[in-house]
Each structure stands twice: as structure tokens, then as C-alpha cells.
């Protein structure tokens, strides 16, 4: 290094400038500028105080511009897209949930209607069965009554014909006995006696 004292001062200023570039830069630039003009290439560029004011100026402008553009224009645009998408997705999800609820309600209603129909069908079937059974029972009862009436009638007829037959048998037997007696004995036997005898034989 050519002039040690001056570069020493610059180092201290640079270290100070690192902590407080805004203030330190201003004060020391004027003093170091003269020494730097000659060996501008030699200084370590990041510690070169002569460049600090313009860098700070442009940093302020550039970063301020970036902040303005970001906060006013760019970020709301991107944020709006993302929010729109999130809203759309949550809206679609809500719609899907609503439709799902509707379809579930419809399904429940269908199930209910089905159960109702099943119950009705069972009731109708039961009723038809009951009616048929009642009809059949009535028919059977009627048929049975008819049959039993016929049986009674027949029994009566049988009994009548039996009685008549019995009576006829008695008469025939008396006639036969009278004939037999007449031809065997040849005498006259009273009809009353014969009847008495036949009756006795028949009842025996």
C-alpha cells in the first residue's frame, strides 16, 4: 500500500460504514475521495466509500419501487387469483356437499317409500289371503251344512224306508205265515194270532 495512514483511516471508516452506512458514508467520502481517484482500481470495491452514496440512492429508489409495485400491483393480483381459486374450491366443495345431502335425502325418501309400499303390499296380500280364507271357510261351512243336511235327510229317508220296510216285512210275514198255516193246517187261524206270533218271532 502506498500511503498507510490514509488507507488505515479508510478501513476504520469502512468498518463504521458497515454498521451505519447512511451516516458514515456521507462524512468520510469527501476526505477519502482524493486518495481514491489515483488508485481507484486498487481499493477493494465493496469497501470503496466513494460508491456508497450512489449505491444507497439507487438502492432506495429500486427497493422502494419494488415495494410499491409489489404491495400495490403484483401481490394483490396474485393473491386474488389464489383466493379466487380457494373460494372456488371451497364453493365447489360446499356445492358437492349440498348435492350429496340432497341425494342422501332422496335416497332416504326412496327407502321410506319402498318400505311403505312393502308394508302396503303385505297388508293387501294379508287382506286378500284373509278374504280368500273367509270365503273358503264360508264355502266349506255351507258345503258341510248342505252335506250334513243331506245326510240327515238321507238318514231320515233311510229310517223311513227301513220302518216302512220293517212294516212291510211284518205284513209279508203275516201273509206268508197265513198262507203257510192255511195250506199246512188247512184250518182258519185268526189273523190276530198270526200277527202276534210273527211279531214275537221278528222281535226275537
Amino acid at each position: 500500500m502506498a500511503n498507510t495512514t490514509e488507507t488505515h483511516g479508510e478501513a476504520a471508516a469502512a468498518a463504521e460504514g458497515a454498521a451505519q452506512p447512511a451516516d458514515a458514508g456521507h462524512a468520510t467520502t469527501a476526505t477519502t475521495e482524493a486518495g481514491h481517484g489515483a488508485e481507484a482500481h486498487g481499493a477493494f470495491p465493496p469497501f470503496d466509500l466513494t460508491t456508497f452514496p450512489s449505491q444507497l440512492l439507487w438502492l432506495t429508489i429500486a427497493f422502494g419501487l419494488l415495494y410499491m409495485l409489489m404491495s400495490r400491483v403484483a401481490l394483490p393480483r396474485v393473491g386474488k387469483i389464489i383466493d379466487d381459486r380457494n373460494n372456488r374450491i371451497s364453493g365447489d366443495l360446499a356445492e358437492a356437499n349440498r348435492l350429496k345431502g340432497e341425494s342422501e335425502a332422496a335416497s332416504a325418501a326412496y327407502e321410506q317409500a319402498l318400505a311403505e309400499a312393502r308394508r302396503n303390499a303385505a297388508a293387501i296380500g294379508q287382506k286378500a289371503r284373509d278374504e280368500a280364507k273367509a270365503d273358503a271357510d264360508a264355502e266349506r261351512a255351507r258345503a258341510e251344512a248342505e252335506v250334513s243336511a243331506k245326510v240327515v235327510q238321507s238318514e231320515k229317508a233311510i229310517a223311513a224306508s227301513k220302518a216302512k220296510a220293517m212294516a212291510d216285512v211284518g205284513g209279508i210275514a203275516v201273509d206268508a205265515a197265513e198262507g203257510i198255516v192255511k195250506s199246512l193246517v188247512g184250518g182258519a187261524v185268526s189273523k190276530a194270532d198270526i200277527e202276534k206270533a210273527v211279531k214275537a218271532a221278528l222281535t226275537r
Binding site: 500500500m1 488507507t7 478501513a11 469502512a14 468498518a15 481499493a43 469497501f47
Partner: peptide, 8 residues
């Protein structure tokens, strides 16, 4: 180190 090389 950089300070030592380039600045001091």
C-alpha cells in the same frame, strides 16, 4: 481475512 488482504 479480506480486510487484512485488501484494506489494511
Amino acid at each position: 481475512a479480506l480486510l487484512l488482504i485488501f484494506v489494511v
